[in-house]
Amino acid sequence: MTSLTRRLAHRAVHAAWRRIDRWGEIVPGTTAAARFGTFGPGTAIGFPTATIMNPERIHLGADTLVGRQVTLSVGYGLGDTHAPARALVVGDRCVIGARCTITAHESIRIGDAVWFGQDVFVSDASHGYADPDTPIGEQFGTHQPVEIGSGTWIGHGAIVLPGARIGRQVVVAAGSVVRGEIPDHCVVAGTPARIVRRLEPGVGWVGHQGDVRPVSAGLAALGGLTDLELAELTGP
C-alpha cells in the first residue's frame, strides 16, 4: 500500500467513525431516548454506550451529558418489574464522564449540575456474606438509597457506596471511597473518604489542620488539596 493510499484510507476510516459517533448518540427524538422514563431536552448519551438496562426506570434531566461507554443500570436484570419506576434520577446540567457506572436497585438521586470524572462507580446495593455456604455473588445485600447533592464534583475513579448521602457543593477527590453522610460545602478524600476542608461562614475554607483559604467567586473559588493533605491521606 502506497503512502497516498494509506493516507486516504486513514482519512476515510476517521470520517466514517465521526459519522458513526454522531449518528450513534442517544439524543431527544431518537428511538433509544424514547425508551427512557424521562429524557430531557439538550441531553445526550455518547456512543458507544456500555450498558443501558431498564431505561424506562431511568430519568435524565435537561442539558445533561453522559460520556462514552457509560453504564446506566436499574434492577437485577432486563425487565425487572420489582425495581421502582424512578430508581435512577439524574438532574439538569449534569456531566457523567466516560466509563462511569451507575447501578440502581431502589434509589439513586443525583441533583442538578453534578459533574463526574471518568471511571466513577455508584451503587445502592452490594452483596452479603452471612451464609458461609452460599457464594458471595449469590447473596444479595440490602438496598440503601444514595443521594448526591446539586453542584457536587465526583473525581476520577471515585466509588460511592450504598447508603452514601453527599451534600451540595461537595468535592470528592479522585480515587476516594465514599460512605455515610457528607455535609454540604466540604472537600473529602481518602479511603474511606473523610473531610479535609470545609466552609465555615464568615471564616473561609478551613482545612483539617486549621489553615484557612479565603472564599472567592467564580472558577477559582476552591483550590485542590495541598501536598501535605495528599501525603497524609496516602501515607502509611
Rank of each mutant, 00 (worst) to 15 (best):
G155E: 09
L60G: 08
E25F: 02
L78V: 15
H185A: 07
G91E: 01
G141E: 01
T64G: 03
G128F: 13
L78S: 12
E25D: 02
E138W: 12
H59W: 06
T43L: 06
P41I: 10
V178A: 07
T152K: 05
L199A: 08
A16H: 02
G77Y: 06
F116W: 06
R7Q: 10
P55D: 00
R165T: 12
T38N: 09
T191C: 12
L4C: 00
G149I: 04
L72F: 08
V206R: 01
G91F: 06
L219I: 14
A158Y: 07
P214Y: 12
E200P: 03
T30S: 15
L8P: 04
I159R: 05
Q139R: 13
P132W: 01
L65A: 13
Q144V: 14
H127C: 00
P214Q: 12
P145Q: 07
T49F: 04
A113Y: 03
A34M: 08
A83Q: 02
V215C: 05
A16F: 12
H10V: 13
P145N: 07
A62W: 09
G207V: 06
T64L: 00
A113V: 11
T234M: 14
V188D: 06
H82D: 14
L60A: 04
T191I: 15
A231W: 04
G42D: 12
L72R: 08
D92W: 07
A34I: 01
P201Y: 10
W23H: 14
D21A: 14
V203D: 12
G141Q: 08
L65F: 08
T142M: 11
A158F: 05
M1W: 08
A164I: 05
R68A: 11
G61S: 12
R19D: 14
R68H: 13
I195Y: 11
G157Q: 04
G141T: 09
R93T: 07
W205A: 05
Y129Q: 13
G61D: 01
T71W: 07
C94I: 06
Q69Y: 04
A16G: 00
D21T: 11
G223I: 12
G79H: 05
V114W: 05
P41E: 12
V187L: 02
I110M: 08
G149T: 03
G117T: 06
L88K: 02
L8G: 00
V215K: 00
G111C: 04
S126F: 09
I20A: 15
Q209G: 15
T30D: 03
L230K: 09
W115D: 09
V122Q: 02
R57Q: 09
V171K: 10
V146P: 07
W205P: 03
P236A: 15
G24V: 01
L219C: 00
L72P: 01
R165G: 01
D124S: 00
A15R: 07
T5G: 04
G163E: 05
T43N: 06
S107G: 00
F121E: 12
E200F: 13
